[in-house]
Design a protein around this nucleic acid. Structure first.
Lengths: 234, 234
DNA sequence: ACCTGAACACCGTTCAAGT
DNA sequence: ACCTGAACACCGTTCAAGT
């Protein structure tokens, strides 16, 4: 075997690139992109950086802290869509921005959708939804209820998409046929009838449907709110 | 140390209670109830049964298979509510039955909501929702879209509840006050205004709101569907 | 301040040996 | 058919030793 440079011990020399929280998060995302969520660990992330696993503890609070940091990073990457003032349009735009960010790293999506974070990372879209609702005349308490319902629908839908995994070509059509057979063999009458539709799932179209449905329902509800004595200036 | 009975080796004697898939699932749920999802493992579940971890492999396909089995068990425990024929009422009843089953074992809820199962375990409520929609005059393709939206909202809402964990008494009010402070310090104007409502979350009430909102929206939409030439017999 | 060696207490899983 | 011993290749994490 060729003699390799022995790993140095102690603090690295001055000018050298050092470890950082941001670099660790990026490395973790690289591992996730390449090998999936289950493969992320202190050792694999450190290896990605050419560093000992224990070094990470200087920048991140253990494995849980590392995963939190990754989730926060993705959450913070949600772009802020330009708002038009039209309630339905704005709600749809915000929801799609959320989905885009969550699925930008498909294998990391579950992390973002599933971890409950105590940080302020993902609050920009929350502010956006609330401001759009408030501007449409929805009172604060009701706005929060609607926000939570909208968020639940988005998370549930994107989570389904993320866990279904990528689908392409022949293997997908084979899987669809298999599911269809299984459903038809269930014996439940409505399930059998709906089997062709249940067996397949166009996730993008399904998200569009859900978001359009929710946006329309929210708009209808907000429009029905009695306006508190409009002033002359309005 | 006192001499303890040495663990026997080989197949257990005839009359003795043996391992079974059902017993393993029950033991796993006991571990989850007592120590949380993270504590479940081949070793801890086996210990709960007074058995060696490797014995589980005779009844369950590794750890992943064990977790699938647990999720399926919970899913299969969803009770089938009696249907009235009134769309809103029936949708609400089915959704609540789903939540009841998922939260019956609070620490196992994430498992049920998060794992994607290939079995037929959870299809009874799917059949129920579809049949209710079909009976109300909604065509199959549209029924599947609505079913998926309803399911996403339910899953998203219950998942939030499950991850928030149990909340009681003084510690909860302290946490609420802390969250309120954090939100108010965010600087985002609508967030600040809504902070009192965002800081707290009555999960049961929030689920009621979401389900009522969805059921009403679905009913409104289904009512607007043009009836295909009703016959004299109808 | 920050990185590593040594070490610890865990994991899931395979396979042959046992009854 | 079904359980365990021995063994393997992993984990996350602590802490002192190094620079």
């Amino acid at each position: 075997v060729a003699t390799r440079a022995p790993p140095r011990r102690g603090r690295p020399p001055k000018g050298e690139e050092r470890l950082s929280r941001a670099a660790i998060v990026e490395a973790a995302l690289a591992v996730i992109d390449a090998q999936g969520l289950d493969s992320v660990g202190m050792r694999s992330v450190a290896a990605q950086l050419g560093v000992d696993a224990k070094s990470l503890y200087n920048h991140v609070d253990g494995k849980e802290g590392l995963l939190d940091a990754v989730a926060e990073h993705v959450l913070a990457s949600i772009r802020n869509p330009a708002l038009t003032g039209v309630l339905v349009d704005d709600l749809r735009a915000i929801a799609h921005a959320f989905r885009d960010a969550a699925l930008a790293r498909p294998l990391a999506a579950t992390l973002v959708l599933t971890r409950q974070l105590s940080s302020l990372a993902g609050l920009a879209p929350v502010e956006a939804v609330l401001s759009v609702l408030r501007r449409a005349g929805c009172p604060p308490a009701e706005s929060v209820h609607l926000l939570r319902t909208l968020l639940a629908t988005s998370i549930g839908t994107i989570l389904r998409e993320a866990q279904a995994g990528p689908t392409f070509g022949a293997s997908a059509t084979a899987a669809i046929a298999r599911r269809k057979k299984t459903l038809e063999a269930s014996g439940l009458p409505t399930l059998v009838e709906a089997a062709p539709y249940l067996a397949r799932c166009d996730h993008a179209a399904e998200f569009d449907f859900a978001v359009d449905f929710m946006a329309a329902a929210v708009a209808a509800r907000v429009a029905a709110i009695p306006r508190p004595r409009p002033t002359a200036r309005d």
